[in-house]
Design a protein around this nucleic acid. Structure first.
Lengths: 197, 197
DNA sequence: GGTAAATCCGACCATATGGTCTGTATATAG
DNA sequence: CTATATACAGACCATATGGTCGGATTTACC
């Protein structure tokens, strides 16, 4: 693998585990047995480095785990349930889980770095749009009750997912997941179509 | 006000706004026109300082905004609704909102500082216990459906609140709040007692 | 008023960090 | 074979940070 890509991969790993401000460039270079010269040959600054990571790795990761799985013509509530279940199962099996990457970075950069925040918010928006679209399609196809506010449901889903991933890092992730999923299904039952097809 | 308390108050302000690792002791001292000597006379280290802030300020803050308001013998779903609404309203009106303090610190310290994480988890547990208790009492008093899993509901509520506070920092906090509350009520409607009293 | 404890000052230190710069090995092109 | 761009090494720099320490000042108490 090219040096530049190895730097980005290792960079994301460490930024996710230790946070952006608490991860030095030397930390990343040490792990890869590379030098300062190599880093500043490929990137302008630490911030530029992180922005590229967001666009090249983070955005794709979010897409593959949270957006792509909910595309399709099936019942969106079923798709979202499975999507969240899978994502949380990965976290449960992960020895060292640090929560949702996207949520963590938003927390870290909020009010500190507007440039990076714009990039992160862009990903959030893409996720939101896809969620709303999926729910609206589900409403059109008769899976959701016609009174459901899809924007509101999307916000609620994003919130709960961000939050539970944070909570899971504290203690008993498997139990937290189980409890969360049970109430997610409860909520979904309340917004699904009442017409018995 | 005593110097020690002023340090803690200003410390919490800055730690909340900029994060623990990105706030230097000099930042705090500069704002208070105090010296290093004053700081290390009152506190052993930056970590000790933060632990005391958690116990003296953060724990009380969480208690007064998220726990105390849901105590009582009324319908817990009504109490929680109002509690969340009030807390989010404060955030909306706050020019610079940085999300839920507790959630932010958990994100920042997770996997980095076990000592501080223990103190933060303690607060989470207290909140959780009080939520579960309130819900169980509500079930006993006929406000909640008797099939409701109160532990699961508490986890779901904590998750969604943590998450929405993070989301609100990104954009359109007022809209996010409105949407969130509408779906919270939707969820509550699905777990309230079905018996018409 | 003298003494001692409490409170605070600020110079200083070791270390870490983002970033710069010069040099060097390799590869590619003419 | 030479020249030139690519890709990386590593010494170096300015600055920042957590923490130390001797001393000055204020307060409390007899």
């Amino acid at each position: 693998m090219a040096t530049m890509q190895r730097m980005q991969t290792t960079g994301l790993e460490l930024f996710y585990a230790k946070g952006y401000y608490d991860t030095s460039i030397d930390d990343i270079l040490k792990k890869l047995h590379l030098s300062k010269g190599a880093f500043y040959y490929h990137f302008d600054s630490k911030e530029d480095f992180f922005v590229q990571i967001i666009q090249n790795l983070l955005a794709r990761k979010i897409y593959s785990t949270l957006i792509e799985p909910i595309e399709g013509h099936d019942n969106p509530l079923t798709l979202i349930t499975k999507c969240f279940d899978d994502a949380m199962e990965t976290a449960v099996h992960n020895e060292l889980d640090y929560g949702c990457i996207l949520s963590n970075f938003i927390t870290e950069f909020n009010g500190k770095n507007d440039i990076i925040m714009r990039h992160l918010n862009e990903i959030v928006t893409v996720w939101e749009v896809n969620l709303v679209t999926a729910l609206q399609k589900g409403k059109f196809n008769g899976y959701l009750d016609r009174h459901v506010d899809c924007e509101a449901a999307a916000t609620f889903l994003m919130s709960s997912y961000f939050g539970v991933r944070t909570l899971m890092t504290s203690a008993a992730p498997a139990a937290k997941k189980y409890r969360f999923m049970s109430q997610l299904r409860q909520y979904f039952k309340s917004i699904e179509s009442k017409v018995i097809s």
